[in-house]
Amino acid sequence: MSFDAFIYEAGLLLLAAASAYMAVVIKKLTAIVGEKNNLWLLPAAGSAVLIVSLAAHLYATIALLPELGKHIQMFSDENIIFNSAKMDEVKAAVEKIKNSLLLLKAFSFTCFFVSSLLIALASWLYLKLISK
C-alpha cells in the first residue's frame, strides 16, 4: 500500500471515530436538555457510511491496484507481446480494472459526501433544537 493511501485511510478512520463520538455526545446532550429524539442516529449513520467509504478505498488499494500493476507488467512479457490474442486479453483486463477503480473512487467519495451531509445536518438540527 502506498503511503499517501495509508495517510488518507488513517484520516478517514479518525474522522469516522470523531463522527461516532459526536453521536455519543449528541445523545447525552439531548438527554441533558430533556428532549426525546433520535438525532444521534444521524452522526452514527454518518460514521457507518464513512467506514463503507474506507472499505471501498482499502479494497481498491489492497486488491485492485496490485492487480493492475501485475497486468501492466505483462505488457513486457515476450509471450504476450507476440501473441495478439493474449495481448487483447491483457488490454481488456487492464481496462476492466481501470473502470472498477474509477467506479470505486466515485463510490468512496459519494459515501464521504453523504457522511458529511449527515454530520452537518445533525449539528444544525441540534443547534436549532437548543436555540428554541
Binding site: L15, A18, M22, L29, L102, K105, A106, F109, T110, F112, F113, S115, S116, L117, I119, A120, L121, A122, S123, W124, Y126, L127, I130
Partner: peptide
C-alpha cells in the same frame, strides 16, 4: 473523475461546516 472531485470537495466543505456548527453548540 470530475464527479469524484466535486463530491470530495463538497464532502470536505460539509464536514467543516458540521464541526463548526458543533463547535458553536
Amino acid at each position: 473523475q470530475a464527479y469524484s472531485l466535486v463530491t470530495a470537495v463538497a464532502g470536505g466543505l460539509f464536514f467543516w461546516i458540521g464541526f463548526i456548527i458543533f463547535g458553536i453548540t
